[in-house]
Structures are given as C-alpha cells and as structure tokens.
Nucleic acid binder design. Structure first.
Length: 569
RNA sequence: CGGGGUGUGGCUCAGACUGGUAGAGCACUGCGUUCGGGACGCAGGGGUCGGAGGUUCAAAUCCUCUCACCCCGACCA
C-alpha cells in the first residue's frame, strides 16, 4: 500500500480530549476519527488492525468447531419482552420505532436472537452440541463513553453462544471456549490474565474474564503469587489477620473528636492505626438498609455487600439519607447502639480494643470489645481484597493486584434464555429437554485499544507483529531518486512473494517527517531505502522499539525481513 | 443521572469582561532555498464565530432557548 495514496491523517499535536495513551495514539496515528460521543470511524490503518484481530478470532473459533453466522443488529422488542429484558435492561438499550410504531432495539447482545433461532431450527439432541458465533457491531448507550474505542457506545464484538443437552456438555463447551480464548490472546501477542469473575445479575455457575494487563485498565484483578488463583476485584476473596497484636485493652471509654470525620483524621487524632479502627457504611437495597462495618483501611465491595444482605444490588446511601435512617451524621456512626441491622467484615471477627464512632456527633469510642461492649455482629465478606492478603485457594501465597482491561468474558448461562423462550429438543429417549447455554464474548475493537495501551513508547505505537497494520514499512528517502524507487519497489514485490504486506512511504516529505510518522504508526520492521545506506549498496533495517539499526545488503533484505516477520517477534 | 466546562478555518487556541464588522501557530496551495529525525522565506486559499430567537444604529462579544461535545463523580463515613 502506498502511503501517499492512503488516508493516514497523522497529528503532530495531542488531541485535548484524549486522556489515555491508546486514545491519543489512535487519533494521532490516524487510526480512527470521532463522529459522535462514543462513535468512531475506522480509517484505513485502524481498520487493518481491526481486521487482523477479527481474523485471529475467526480462525480460532472455527478451529474450535463454532459456526459463524450473522444476526441482525436491529431486533424486535417482542423477543426482548419474551426474555423479560425489555423491562430489565434500562437506558443502555437503544430503543426506537419503525414507521409503523413498532418497538425495536439496536442489539447490545444477542441471546434472544440466537435462542429464537435455535428453538425454530434445532429439534433433536443429535443437533447438539452447537456453538454459533458472529462478529458484529453492537451498540450500548453507555452512561459515559470514554477513552475512545476502549469504552465506546458502538463497538465490534465477537459473541458466541453454545447449546448443550446438559450441564456436563456445557462444562465441555465452556472449557473448550476458555482454551480457545487463551489461544486467541496468545496469538494477539498480548500479556493477559484469565480471572474468575462475578456472574452478576445473570447468575449462573461460573464465569471468567480475560484481561489485558495495563496500568490504565478500568478493572482491578487479584492474583496469587503461588498458585493459579486470579479473580476480578469484584469477586476476589482474601484473608487478612484479624487480631491486631497489642497490649492490654482498657475499658471502653468516650473520646471527644470534634470535627474529626474521616478514618484518616480520626486515626491521626487519636494515634490509633487504621487497622484498629472500624468504619460504618450504610447501604440500601430492596431488602432495606444495613449498617456495614469495615476495618479503617479497607474498602467496601458493593457486590459482596449485595450478596451479604441478600439483595440483587445495593447502593451506598447519601449522607442526608443516613441521617434520616439512623439519626446520626456520617462519620460518627458506630456499632455500639446501632439502630440498623449490622453486618461486619470477616476481618473484624477477632479485633479487640478498637475505635468506632459513638453514634453521636464529635465523639468516638476507644477500646471497644465485642460482647463486652456491644453484640458481635454477623460476619460476612464485604471488602475489597488488598495487596498482600492471603490466597483463599492455596492458603500459602499472597495476593497481588494489577489493573486490567476486560477484553473477553465467558460464562455459563444455564437455561435462563432457553427456558424463557421455551426451547425444547428431544433427547435419545424421546423426552423434551431444555438445552443449557453458555455465552462467550470478545471485545474485538477494544483489543485494538488494549494492545496499544500495553505496547507503546513516547514516540508512538509499538505493534505486536500479529496485530500490526503492516509487518513492514519501507521508508523511501526520496521519491525522486529513481534508483531508490526501483529498489523499494522490488523489495515490496519480493516481500509480497512471501505473503508479506508492505506499507511504502512514498510521500514527497522530508525524511524526519516520515520517521516521526513511522514511529507513531508503530509498524514492527522499518526499512529505509535511499540516501547514504543505498550508496553503500544496503538498506537500513530497524525494529520498532529497538534503538539499533542494521545495514543489510540489497540482495539479502527480502530474506532477512521475511525471516523476522515469520518469527513473529 | 449529578456537577463543571467548551463550541471561532482541517487541528490547537486568542478575541468576549468593556458590542464597532475576525486573528495567531500548525496544516493546505504556489514559487524559491533546504534535504537522514516533525526546515526556512515569500505569496496565497479557506471561517453560516454550534443553531434559533431577542436587545441594539451595530452582536463572535449582551439576554433567552436549544443542540453538540469534553471532563469529573456516582467507592469510604
């Protein structure tokens, strides 16, 4: 492909709106352009990368025996009413009407459509197991699209849905998909981790997320340094010693703490470590309001809190509402004389002589003990794990925390949709059975952003070879030098014979400009043709991201580059 | 959804408070010089000042409405 004849609108200046590297670089390297909030056009270079990801995903899905189909993006409301999600889904679902006033939505996901397909077409257990997938544009009307492609509203996704006669079959399908996902992300050349995840409102037995590790990731994942345990922070469990070693604990007494509110302030004011303080948070769900107790240095996990109080979800309540519910201002709540039902995090089980709010403004209790001073509340897992917590699986290792970008999610749906849409197939004994489903998503467009997030330097993108728009870029020093043009063209032709696609920068620009753009674009191998190296009968070759340049004799360049590209390094 | 902010040439922004008929840098076009890490000079082209309405002799500027986009928050008591 010729640079001069291609739309690669690189930007010298940094776009103001871009807050993360991948967004900045995708705009600067001319991969994408924004059309509206969370909506982007893919330009030639960006689309090349997107197609690379797609191809890898498609090849691995096909290899796993999944069947590619393409379902409609626009879906009738009736199906969603049948599954109950027309009511459940909320404003993220983009809804509209056709000219006849019939309700439709733009599909954010396709459980309903695929399940409808299966109930119409599959009658016998002989048709199972089956796994249908598509690579398609989805739309989710996100509360707040951000970070460019990373959290857009319109995005490209691969979604697959498996159907099995029973749980045993589902387990097999699920494991096959996990293996397939591992192959996909390995082939993409990404550092990633598969983690256990919360199944969310959909429920179901198990769920794994695949995260590309990057500091800018929106998710936090915990992993054990000794065994293979890894989990999303939403789900991760960990143990922390609950008893704080210390001397004698005196009797409970009140201390005036005027104007001292936050845990840090109280800790500094009283000279007690955060680990010996208890904070009280009030949450409310469909089951009512609860007062939750956590150690001063721990964070509440709302998902765990919801599980603990038996609600589908809970919210942290506003300070004004806390006052209304308890008669106490936030910052002064405590377990002694609490009015709401109280739940405490496991870490507080053996804590002695702690500090807690006195349910009275400007006053805290010091040296509180369970049973002696107030009843010991019911214990539950309520907090986010912290780095260094003990591993819940092997009991030996400790947990570390990393940030990740969720690029894949697999989970077992069970019969939620197959039941709601009344799918039935006959088993070998002629009985009607409801198939069990699994669903498996990959954020194809998000992988592009995640790959950049993980592979860049201060000059631009450094593509993994597998995802690069081109494996090789030829920089023509001067398009007016006829000999150089001839060499560049024959190099391009030579590489083409090895199936290597080349970007040839034939623009009439100063060399510096081409170098800067080449760095920005991040194409793995750069060959400089012309100028002083050509005078010596060679081509200067450099690996993007590496400082050293190599002079390769003219007749060896094709061989040299094709070998490197084939290695994929 | 709550809060904050911004819409002026393709991009980054000035001009607005104090109304007087639109500007800079980059980009683009032409010519010349330059030519292995985002060159320089000269000459050019390009703007319904987001939109609608209002005030005024006069509106990018003041007022009202509206649209779009961006940022922060929604997790600490």
């Amino acid at each position: 492909m010729r640079f001069a004849a291609t739309l690669i609108p690189t930007l010298k200046e940094n776009p103001v709106e871009a807050r993360v590297e991948s967004h900045r670089l995708m705009l600067r390297a001319g991969l994408i352009r924004q059309l509206g909030a969370g909506i982007y056009t893919w330009l030639p270079m960006g689309l090349k990368v997107l197609r690379k990801v797609e191809t890898i995903v498609r090849e691995e899905m096909d290899a796993a025996g999944a069947q590619e189909i393409l379902m409609p993006a626009v879906q009738p409301a009736e199906l969603w009413q049948e599954s109950g999600r027309w009511q459940m889904y909320g404003p993220e679902l983009l809804r509209f009407q056709d000219r006849g006033g019939r309700d439709f939505c733009f599909g954010p996901t396709h459980e309903e459509v695929v399940t409808d397909l299966v109930r119409r077409e599959l009658r016998s257990y002989r048709h199972l197991p089956a796994n249908f997938y598509q690579i398609q544009t989805k739309f989710r009307d996100e509360i707040r699209p951000r970070f460019g492609i990373m959290r857009g509203r319109e995005f490209l996704m691969k979604d697959a849905y498996s159907f099995d006669l029973d749980e045993v079959g589902l387990d097999k399908s699920y494991i096959l998909m996990v293996e397939t996902y591992n192959r996909i992300f390995q082939r993409c050349g990404l550092h990633y981790r598969a983690v256990e995840a919360d199944t969310g409102s959909i429920g179901g037995a198990s769920s794994h997320e695949f995260h590309v590790l990057a500091n800018s990731g929106e998710d936090v994942i915990a992993s054990c340094d000794s065994c293979g345990y890894a989990a999303n922070l939403e789900k991760a469990e960990g143990s922390s010693p609950s008893a704080i070693p210390g001397g004698e604990v005196g009797s409970m007494r009140a201390v005036a703490t005027p104007g001292v509110k936050t845990m840090e302030e109280v800790s500094a004011f009283l000279g007690y470590p955060l680990g010996r303080m208890i904070k009280s948070l009030v949450v409310e769900g469909e089951g009512g309001a609860f007062q939750l107790l956590l150690r001063g240095d721990h964070e509440l996990n709302l998902i765990k809190a919801a599980h603990a109080v038996g609600s589908a979800f809970v919210q942290l309540v506003e300070p004004a509402r806390v006052q209304e519910l308890t008669g106490v201002a936030v910052g002064s709540l405590g377990p002694v004389g609490a009015v709401l039902p109280v739940l405490a995090d496991h870490c507080l089980k053996d804590l002695v002589g702690f500090v807690a709010g006195a349910n009275e403004d400007g006053k805290h209790w010091v040296d509180v003990m369970w049973e002696r001073d107030c009843p010991k509340p019911q214990m539950a897992d309520l907090r986010n794990v912290v780095a260094g917590d003990g591993c819940p699986r092997c009991q030996v290792g400790s947990l570390r925390l990393d940030r990740g970008i969720e690029v894949g999610h697999v989970f077992k749906l069970g019969d939620k949709y197959s039941k709601a849409l009344q799918v039935a197939v006959q088993d070998a004994d002629g009985r009607e059975r409801t198939p069990v489903m699994g669903c498996y998503g990959i954020g194809v467009s998000r992988i592009v952003a995640a790959a950049i997030e993980q592979n860049h330097d201060d000059q631009g993108i450094v593509w993994p070879v597998a995802l690069a728009p081109f494996p090789v870029e030829i920089v023509l020093v001067n398009p007016k030098e006829t000999q150089a043009v001839a060499v560049a063209t024959s190099l391009e032709e030579g590489l083409k014979k090895f199936g290597i696609d080349v970007l040839l920068d034939d623009r009439d620009e100063r060399l510096g400009v081409k170098f800067k753009d080449a760095d920005l674009l991040g194409i793995p191998w750069r060959a400089v043709v012309g100028g002083r190296s050509l005078k010596e009968g060679s081509v200067e070759v450099q690996r993007r991201g590496k400082p050293d340049k190599e002079l390769i004799a003219l007749d060896k360049v094709v061989e040299f580059l094709s070998a490197r590209v084939r290695d994929g390094k």
